[in-house]
Design a protein around this nucleic acid. Structure first.
Lengths: 201, 201, 201, 201
DNA sequence: CGGTAAACGAGACGGTACGTCGTGTCTTTGA
DNA sequence: TCAAAGACACGACGTACCGTCTCGTTTACCG
């Protein structure tokens, strides 16, 4: 790997170490899930001292998150020019695919286990959750502007109703995560359950 | 198979020990959250040997779950004679209150960390999740019968939209879990987002 | 004391169980040494409940000792009519052979580990040690009477010098336990080291 | 092989921890005998983690032996200028005193229980047994040179006859371990039992 | 010959110690 | 100065036996 110049192990390693750590964490995550991502395993596999890891991340969850953040595509790069609701469906399908993968559970575990206020946890949420939610919010607004949606609703609540079911099934595993599920969520929500005005509070 | 008349040989398991273990686990869960529920702490607090715990439960998550299952009320005992949608709102408020408590995170962690196929995990899901979902399904049906709802929708998807947001916020913590949140979910869903027929797939 | 007329009420102890227990203990001792002789292993192998063992023996060492006592030949049945010193050599060879076997170490361990005052420990010592020592004492006396020995010595010290070396090598393992060793001990002792009268105290 | 210039990487082992562990083991040994020397007790008393102990020693017997080796005087420092046989008597009295102490049984137990081939067991035997035996051998040789002894005998057998009785009584406990016992052994051996030439094999 | 009392098998009990693992901190050496 | 290596204190893990107890069953004797 580092054969020709044979740069002996020493000080100037900062970037290389970081990359090796994240790579090791990613591989461990894929092979054995989050429980396999131990500091010791990372250090050994990356050829790095444990203190070097702790210098950058506070605990193993942060390393795992950083590995995911590092690996994931920065943007969904949604298909431009599509109708807003179709774009929303497309995005939802992508998220469903992620949750359906082996990493899905790991994502959920991290969301729970990590310190909610840590720097990396915030970045993780930004990258994986908030960014998509922001996209979704923009899509809803556009749909209203273009007349695809005409109801009166709190967009934040609507976004919860859109993304919530995916997390629900991720946690409970009581149903599939297929593409049609993403579509069904949108359809059910935009049509509503048919309020009659009788059952209101 | 040969269950009713047969009796296992040897000394029967002690009811006292079982009760003490679950009580200790419950207290530890309330005081320090799930991380505090260690086998050693349970054993010491319950005045019980560790093997006695392992004889019944496979790991600390199972004990914690069993403690919750043991402690929780069997049924929500919803207010009878209320309008179905009001009953649904009431149930949702109760769940929100649970998730808002210190136990909320623990519940979520357990759902993730425990072996999904274990006996206790199944019981836990039945008691805490499925039972409420079943109640919700009945309420939806009743609302349709009574004319409070008139839409055409897949009830399973609708139930996901109802309960999903609570898990979403439990995981992400991006918003409150108050009583009004429960109401807002129901309202948003029954009215829908106002489909125009244009944005369909 | 009150043995003949009195008879305990209830079911008498099972001879079959006793035999099975001692057999199991003996086998375990041969296969894995003393550490393998655990109460649980004995009980399982003998098809017997642990309390049945404890009813007769106080701990695993006692069981192991009883197993040895039960297995060992009651008497050395020394060759009659042999010269006393030859008989002594013969006996010593037999003891060396025992110590050289797999059971040798177990014997030593038990002598150390068991409660020195227990009933079985005493029986064990009687059977294995004292009986042989008594035989040895008789042989010494006979040798003196017959004129084979003419020195002035304390017989108890002489007996220690005869049997001690075997235990020494059993413990330390610094030399063989062959037949010639037994002979060498007797020879060296009966001739002595050749006192000159100068080094006396 | 490459010992002198080479140095293991990483943090070197703590001398303080080693000393604390051996001190704790020694105290436990004195207070409660070998059964009291448990890894957990050592770790707690020494303020040390269990893995730190296991890093150096394989089991509690090794720790106990190391503690004794560490504590014992390197040499008996026998009284110079004494007659060789008197020096031998002196040494034997010292050993008898050790065996008579609370540590005596522990010493014997360790000799049996520990892995005979382990590094520490070898050191233990060297320090406690072989060194004294070597001293004894030298004394015998000197006594022959000086004419205090004139017999023809195998010195190794003679040494077994000298030290064996002490181990015999240590194991069997059938007699005292006093100073006069040490003297009696030497006296009996140097004079012999008085061979007549009749009882030979 | 039917009661009764003890011994039986089975195995759960409260404990203690085991030896392993992972954590997050520290100390040393080397580049 | 900082990185690797790895020892450190800590503490939970899950296992193995200990010696005791509680079951329901079996078996011999004695009234």
């Amino acid at each position: 790997m580092d054969s020709p110049p044979v740069r002996a192990p020493g000080r100037p390693r900062s970037k290389k170490a970081r990359i090796a750590i994240l790579k090791a964490a990613r591989e461990l995550l894929q092979q054995g899930g989050l429980p396999a991502v131990t500091m010791e395993a990372i250090a050994q596999r990356a050829g790095v001292g444990k203190p070097t890891i702790y210098r950058t991340w506070a605990n193993r969850y942060e390393v795992a998150m950083a590995a995911l953040v590092d690996a994931a595509p920065e943007t969904t790069a949604s298909s431009r020019k599509a109708a807003p609701l179709d774009a929303l469906r497309h995005q939802l399908r992508q998220i469903a695919a992620l949750f359906d993968s082996a990493l899905g559970r790991g994502v959920a575990t991290m969301l729970i286990a990590a310190d909610a206020e840590s720097e990396v946890a915030r970045a993780f949420r930004n990258r994986f959750i908030t960014a998509r939610r922001d996209e979704g919010r923009a899509m809803l607004r556009e749909a209203l502007l273009m007349g695809d949606l005409r109801g009166k609703f709190d967009p934040e609540i609507a976004l919860d109703l859109i993304y919530g079911p995916l997390f629900y099934r991720l946690l409970m595993g009581h149903g599939g995560m297929g593409q049609d599920y993403a579509d069904a969520i949108v359809d059910c929500l935009v049509h509503g359950l048919g309020a009659s005005g009788k059952g209101a509070a």
